[in-house]
Structure formats: structure tokens, C-alpha cells
């Protein structure tokens, strides 16, 4: 077949899906857009608002406690983790303001974004799990130190040991599960996706084609 014949045959294929631009479709596109924005924006805002709320509670407890330093430290750590989500939203908005245009630029941006997601998930222990574990330990320390005067010394010592004996395994299990889930997502979805995009970028920048 000559290429002109191929092109002629191709253009005679399906060209319509009926009422492609009707009002029902417009409403559905708008709703899909809003839903996507809600999912992405809501997640990050929720994390930040929750962090601010918790930090406020910790500071209030510390203000009225005899031992303030664990609560203040917990508030600082919580705000630190929350601000990372805010920074992520700022970064996303900044990228959206200058979108790429050509296919190769869009693919390169998609590759960069995938690398960013992989880096975030790989480092989740350092910027999310350990700080949250630190907050849990500090809350426990603040609670135990605050109860020191209310309990007989031996009871207080037993409570102290028992609390940590429960907290540490619970934290290790919960955060271990989160870490494993993240590693699974990286391995099963993000790395193959990255490989596919990289192959496309490599093909487009193939110098033999020049």
C-alpha cells in the first residue's frame, strides 16, 4: 500500500462519538476536574491543617503542664512534617504555572515528576515516619513526666516501662507496614512507569535520527 492510500484508509475510520461536545459531557469533564483537584489539594491541605491542629493542642498541654519541653518539641516536629505538605503544594502550583509544551518536554517533565515521587516514597522514613514516631515518643514522655508527681515512684517506673514496651512494637509494626507499602508501590508501579517514559525520551533524543 502506498502511504497516501494508507492515509486515505486511516481517515475513513471512526471520527465521532456522537454528541462529543454536548452539555452532559461538559458537566462531566468539569466534575472530573473538580474531583481531581479535590483529591490532590485536599490530601495535602488536610495533612497541614491536622498538623497545625495537633501542634496547637500540644502547645496548650505543654503550657498547662509542669514539664513543657516534650510537648513543645512534639509541636515543633508536627509543624515541621505538616509544612512539608504545604511546600509540596507550593511546588506543584509552581510547576502548573509553567507547563511544558512539546511531547519531549512533557515526557521529560513526567519523568522528573516520577523521580520526585520515587524519592519522596523512598525517603518516607526520614521525613514522615521517624518524625511521627518522635512525636509519639515525646507525647508519651510528656505524659509520663507529667504523672510522676501523682504516682508512687515504683508505680511510675512500672508505668514508664510498660508504656514504652507497648508503644515501641506498635510504632514499629505500623510504620513498618507503611514503609513496606511504599516500597511495593515504587517497585510495582513507579519504577516500571519511569522505565517506560525514559525509553520514550531516549527514543526522541536519539542522535542517530538527526
Amino acid at each position: 500500500m502506498e502511504f497516501t492510500d494508507i492515509a486515505s484508509a486511516w481517515k475513513q475510520g471512526p471520527a465521532d462519538v456522537g454528541r462529543l461536545v454536548d452539555d452532559r459531557l461538559m458537566a462531566a469533564v468539569l466534575e472530573a476536574d473538580r474531583a481531581l483537584a479535590r483529591t490532590v489539594v485536599r490530601r495535602d491541605r488536610l495533612e497541614f491543617v491536622t498538623a497545625v491542629g495537633m501542634a496547637t493542642v500540644f502547645l496548650w498541654i505543654g503550657w498547662s503542664s509542669t514539664v513543657a519541653w516534650p510537648w513543645v518539641s512534639a509541636a515543633v516536629l508536627t509543624l515541621g512534617v505538616g509544612s512539608l505538605f504545604l511546600w509540596e503544594q507550593v511546588r506543584r502550583n509552581r510547576n502548573a504555572a509553567h507547563p511544558p509544551q512539546s511531547v519531549i518536554a512533557r515526557l521529560t517533565e513526567a519523568l522528573r515528576e516520577t523521580d520526585h515521587q520515587i524519592a519522596q516514597l523512598r525517603s518516607v522514613v526520614w521525613w514522615y515516619l521517624l518524625p511521627l514516631a518522635g512525636v509519639a515518643v515525646l507525647v508519651l514522655v510528656g505524659t509520663i513526666l507529667g504523672a510522676r508527681d501523682a504516682l508512687p515512684p515504683q508505680t511510675w517506673a512500672r508505668v514508664r516501662m510498660g508504656a514504652f514496651a507497648v508503644l515501641i512494637p506498635v510504632l514499629a509494626s505500623a510504620f513498618g507496614a507503611i514503609w513496606w507499602l511504599n516500597a511495593h508501590v515504587i517497585r510495582s508501579r513507579l519504577v516500571p512507569h519511569r522505565k517506560a517514559i525514559l525509553e520514550l525520551v531516549d527514543q526522541l533524543t536519539d542522535r542517530e535520527a538527526e
Binding site: 465521532d16 456522537g18 454528541r19 459531557l25 462531566a28 469533564v29 466534575e31 515526557l107 517514559i197
Partner: peptide, 22 residues
């Protein structure tokens, strides 16, 4: 870009955009 980078795992996560019958 959508066609080349789309991941099948992303399908059906958003509300469906109903198309008229082909």
C-alpha cells in the same frame, strides 16, 4: 502525552465522563 504515559492503574479512579454511544 496522555496516550504515551498513561498507566492503566489510573483508569476508573475519577468519575466517568459519559460519552454518547458510538
Amino acid at each position: 502525552q496522555v496516550a504515551l504515559t498513561r498507566r492503566r492503574a489510573e483508569r476508573r479512579r475519577r468519575p466517568s465522563v459519559p460519552l454518547a454511544d458510538t
